[in-house]
Design a protein around this nucleic acid. Structure first.
Lengths: 211, 211
DNA sequence: ATTCCTTATTGAACACTGTTTAAAATATAA
DNA sequence: TTATATTTTAAACAGTGTTCAATAAGGAAT
């Protein structure tokens, strides 16, 4: 067939990503295919390939969309929060993260299941977007322990966020095996409150035993 | 063709799983296929299907093998460890877990990437094997806080192990974005030491503020 | 030994997957 | 109006997991 020009390529890209995101609200990514996605937007598979080069890069774009969405949601949380209680704000961020994962499990999983084929410059952008999430607690940790050295801030932020991520993952996969009285939210709160209690205590004492 | 009978079905199953595990030492699971696996053991695809019913259940068996392997490795760690220091033993278990994930990243990922199709009784066995790992720290937590109630033990064990899992995951996926001076082992130690410090302190004081 | 039945094994067929490619048709420029 | 460039797609290709009928060997009964 021939050119149709009823969308600019940007419009079409957006439409495709939107359709994929919509799909992920109800079904896991492995149930989606390039052809099915093409059909859902009324174009052929080849057109999508022309736009994104291959299916993997298309999925990377979808993943990037989700990361932006999460990023913005967490940002909104920070701006409208009480800035005095940094500790509580970290809990609030983590709970927001868990909330997103719970509300959009398939969409959330797609981001971290996606296997990037190595040696592509576009992957760096993706990696950066994930990094952006991990870094979000850094200024809050500095607020809790202004005298802490940069390396300790990095260590604590990565420890906390990787842990939060682990709890979210196990939660939406139903791999926690807990009585219903214990919620995933409670695990997040337990993690952050206990970790920060000891960490801040340590930083203010400038102790060298636990870091 | 016809029957060959050079293996019992049990021997053949073992051989197939062994071949898959060997593959996972060098390449990710998505690069393996039923046909390639069949060729590697000198049988046809249909034979593997007859044995495992479908490819997904075959992969579940592979995943089960890995979980048993990890379970045993952690058990060995517990038996030959100093039983007086429960806190240090938890760190040791977690580091062993990280070590396995680092040494066999593709094999480790396969376990948790595997999507179980719901409503199968075999999945329960699999879920139980994962549960077994999470529960491993429970007696150690009881040792640290003998007066703690069962629900607090469960909460702390799940929080800790899901967090450890998260750090392992982010570590082998290179998503931590840290300077090389900060190791994944240090994150694990930081997590457990800080969390337990505050948790034990809380439990011995029987405080109601943080749990 | 010979027949019968069961069991293991497989190749071919099927419907799907992502990707490549050449052809076709419209939009734009000359 | 012609020529060129840009979109779009159908068809072909090599791969995937799965189903199924055909086949041949092992074991049991005669």
């Amino acid at each position: 067939m021939a050119r149709r020009n009823d969308h600019t390529s940007q419009q079409l890209s957006d439409k495709i990503i939107a359709s994929a995101i919509e799909f992920l609200q109800h079904q896991p990514i492995r149930d989606l295919s390039l052809r099915a996605l093409a059909k859902s937007v009324g174009y052929s598979a080849g057109t999508l390939i022309n736009l994104f080069r291959n299916y993997n890069l298309l999925l990377l774009a979808v993943s990037g969309y989700t990361l932006d969405q999460i990023h913005q949601q967490l940002n909104d949380d920070v701006t409208k929060a009480n800035k005095d209680n940094a500790s509580q704000l970290i809990v609030s961020l983590a709970l927001e993260y868990l909330q997103f994962a719970s509300d959009h499990p398939y969409q959330w999983r797609q981001v971290f299941e996606h296997q990037l084929d190595s040696g592509l410059e576009i992957n760096l952008i993706h990696q950066h977007k994930i990094d952006r999430l991990f870094c979000k607690v850094e200024p809050l940790l500095k607020q809790l322990a202004p005298q802490a050295i940069e390396l300790d801030i990095i260590k604590a932020s990565r420890t906390l966020w990787a842990s939060v991520h682990g709890i979210c993952l196990m939660s939406i996969e139903d791999k926690l095996f807990m009585p219903t009285q214990v919620t995933s939210e409670a695990l997040i709160e337990s993690l952050i409150n206990h970790y920060l209690t000891s960490w801040v205590d340590n930083q203010t004492k400038e102790s060298f035993y636990v870091n």
